[in-house]
Design a protein around this nucleic acid. Sequence first.
DNA 1: GCCGTTTTCGGCCCGACTGTTTTCAGTCG
Length: 593
Amino acid sequence: MQKVSPGGKRRMDMTREDFAEVLRRIALLLELKGENPFKIRAYRNGAEAVETFSGDLVTLARENRLDGIKGIGDAIAAKLHELASTGRMEFWEKLRENFPDSIFELFEIGGLGPKKIKALYDAFGVDSIERLKEVCESGEAAALPGFGQKSVAKILDGIAYRESHVGIWRLGDVASIVSEILETLRAHPATSRADAAGSFRRGKETVRDLDFVVATKHPLEILEFFATAPWVAEVLVRGDTKCSIRLAEGIQCDLRAVSNANYPFALNYFTGSKEHNVALRSRALKRGLSLNEYALTPVEGSQAEVPDVFEERDLYRALGLDVIDPALRENTGEIEAAAEGDLPTLVELVNLRGTFHNHTTASDGCDSLEAMAEAAQELGLQYLGIADHSKSSFQANGLNETRLRAQIEAIRRLNETFDDDFQLFAGSEVDILRDGSLDFDDALLGELDYVVASVHNAFQLPEAEMTARILRAVEHPRVTMLGHLTGRLLLQREPYAVKIETIIDACARTGTWIELNSNPWRLDMDWRWWKLARERGVKCVINPDAHRCAELEYLHFGVLQARKGWLRRQDVVNCLPLGMMRETLAAKRLARS
DNA sequence: GCCGTTTTCGGCCCGACTGTTTTCAGTCG
């Protein structure tokens, strides 16, 4: 869990993640205190709302303008305003006086919830994992009411696991595992339908576990097969309808085996998100129907007709909704849009006609210009932009002026060998230097077809400086697009501090495109910002940041994130066919020269 | 604490599994 100490933070440092974390921790402490569960849920919902809100929530909070945000009512809005404007929240500080901060780590142990933590805390003063381990190993814990040998063993297992694994995986790291398991499940003779569900199906950038749903007449057979498959390192749960295992890689996989009739409901339920499910269920209730993971049934006393549901899409129609793509199921307005017939037609991988941010052996790539061009053509792309690093990225063998001019020349020559249905564009991934100036002079930039501007150093600049630095690049007339806006490396490096909304507005004003970097380590700009960017009129460009031919297929992850960001074909510039892209790039250069 | 075709009070999603019980509480998703 991220460490947060808002009391000790300067207020300018507060981020939306800090806000969400404070609300979540309030919920945990209220749970320990045995507070009203609905109040606890309200804080969790508030945290969720804070995280998914499309806009500069921190500024809104500071200016006390949080009204009208779903999930944030008067009480939480006032508390967030206090936190944003003073760096403190009295309610939170009073609450945390009761328990040491280290108690939060106990919630990360599987099998331990608020009740048991409270019992351990009251009985033995357990307030850290270290202390927890002591009382479990000494046998004291097993003697508590409600505890026994097995639950203590489970807790110790949980502690051991936590010590060896972080427990979060990148989408790109699990994609091939999912395909393999799914293929095997589908090949089983007792399987009639099988899908991956959960956050993987929704295309979340990271996942905590993998969920599978199988339709079968022989659930026990399927569960047995799943639990004894060669990939299983450990069986965690084994029932008549559900089995949870841990793979050798460490990730947990849950399988649900249901009847064919239950399947659409189970698939929908286990796809989530939880918030989306809750919203669907309340919508069903308003129609006199109760929705669970097995069926849609009339509530007691209701005369409501229950429509036939054979597939997931029938379920949405039964609730008077257009079918909602899994990528959109985050309860960020998709249900309302589906009810109004306002869902976007989402961009698809087959819509992409080319892509721009790619490297070759000239800088830090592994494949040649020719090989990359050939790979792009094999993927069916009409154009490929080459944007190797600029000279300041010496760690990446960045090109100096001479080498870049030679590469431009090589690209022009290679283009003469292609038919008119494919073209390389000559670009550069130009470093945005510390002061916001670019790594090449305007004359050289003017010789390029396009420019990707990216930050590759001085990540630790304060937010105001970093924002000003990137703004200067955005406003540079030769910059076509902004590369990986926040520089994050998922599960490894935090995004750098930058006012994203300010950058979005500047890009809207100057017509600068924003990259959706599709490398599964980056997926940057984050999907949560794209809806806002689209509304402000910013165009997205989906780039793989490929350093070898095979990485051109990262585009798939980028498209998934674009879909999560509600983007349509017309919002993504590299859906333009070659002819129109030539014109667009030429017009851009002319307009800003 | 939030929210509203249930509208300023009263409801808020709900089932499976586990372990500890002997009819159920806690946890999880």
